[in-house]
């Protein structure tokens, strides 16, 4: 039996599910699922990910989605945002990138899936 074009091409969609695993001294590690909302990272209580460490700026960095990509941007922090040990101003994230902010590390995990819509 030949599959219909509809079932081959439209029943399934490709999606990028992504999350962050956060390891911050003084906190137990936790996961934050990326849903397209901007994630702010910093010492401020207002931030999506609050990192209450002394060498972290009040509003240190943010992660935003642009089309299919997640992009981290340093917000002119004093001590820098590092991706895989490189100090970045901005960086498109890839699976298993290690983000370092002060003494905290955040691992970016992306799962590209093709599943039934």
């Amino acid at each position: 039996m030949m599959l219909s074009h509809e079932s081959v091409f439209t029943d399934f969609t490709t999606a990028n599910a992504a999350h962050l695993d956060i390891f911050c001294p003084g906190q137990s590690s936790y996961t934050h699922v990326l849903d397209g909302e901007i994630v702010s990272i910093g010492r401020s209580e207002e931030c999506t990910l609050e990192i209450p460490l002394s060498n972290v700026s009040y509003e240190h960095a943010q992660i935003a989605r642009k089309k299919e990509e997640y992009i981290i941007e340093d917000l002119n922090s004093t001590n820098g945002t590092f991706v895989n040990n490189v100090r970045v101003s901005r960086c498109i994230l890839h699976n298993h990138d290690h983000i370092r902010i002060g003494a905290a590390t955040i691992e970016f995990i992306q799962n590209r899936t093709r599943s039934k819509a």
């Binding site: 340093d74 895989n84 040990n85 490189v86 100090r87 970045v88 101003s89 960086c91 498109i92």
Partner: peptide
């Protein structure tokens, strides 16, 4: 010395 492999989508200040 910091050494890294340049990658697309990376911006340095």
């Amino acid at each position: 010395m910091e050494i890294f492999w340049a990658r697309e989508g990376l911006t340095l200040a």
